[in-house]
Amino acid sequence: MSAPRKTKAKGAGNVAHFKSLYVLVGFFYAFLYFPIIVLVAYSFNTGTRAMVWKGFGIDWYVKVFTNGAILDAAKNSLLVGLIATILATTIATAGALALARGGAFRGKGVSMGVMTLPLIVPEIVTAVATLMFFSAIGLNLGLGNLIIAHTVFCIPFAFMPIRARLEGMDTYMEQAACDLYATEWQAFRYITLPMMMPGIIAGATLSFVISLDDFIISLMVSSAGTTTLPVYIYSMIRNGISPEVNAISTVLFGVSLALVTIYWIASKPRK
């Protein structure tokens, strides 16, 4: 018998043939997810030392949910996230409609750029600038300061999926509605808005996750009494890593994961 023939000669260009790359992939996933797995696992540890396994239990979750300071921080995070999401999504929807359905107008390209620029500006720069701006104009609204700052940086995140959705919708739908006796407002209300809804949901979800996870800007802008969850977790770590941090981080991770899943489902193109 001759040597075994290569049966998949047709698959030239298929990177799956480079077997050694699998090792790289393994490393990639290990570095990405191993720390998170460890964190989640140790959040169920009953011991008082963060990294010494004693036994399985939800003691630390009970502690987290009875800790007034953590609950206050979580409440702040949710409130800021919710209001900032509503404001940012509304503004982003209006912006996306103007750019996709507003015809040609002067400064259209610039508007698009200005809308998405915050995505590439280093967050620390935005954070410092926001802090200086607020103190310069003497703005002191407590949570209001945080809400304004969060709304601003959430807009581009809300804007992108909404715009992508609108780009894929041709105006024939609205024309068909007007042809069937709908006024322009009715065409918007019954056709445009429902059709762009998956984009709006995706944008809102993304905004909420970004707001919930934000640390740098929140650290700069928050003051006593307006601490958000990530800022509070950071302050806890400075006093040494407690298993409580593992538990609250796991909760935050779970919430984000759920929201990103919603985003992913909502932004999937319709068949």
């Binding site: 024939y172 068909a176 042809d179 059709m195 809804m197 319709r270």
Partner: peptide, 20 residues
């Protein structure tokens, strides 16, 4: 008159059925 004021209906080339 605006399209919605004309008692005329159209069958569009790509149907333009409302997908939702």
């Amino acid at each position: 008159l605006a399209p919605h004021q004309r008692p005329i209906n159209t069958v569009f080339q790509h149907y333009a059925l409302f997908p939702h």
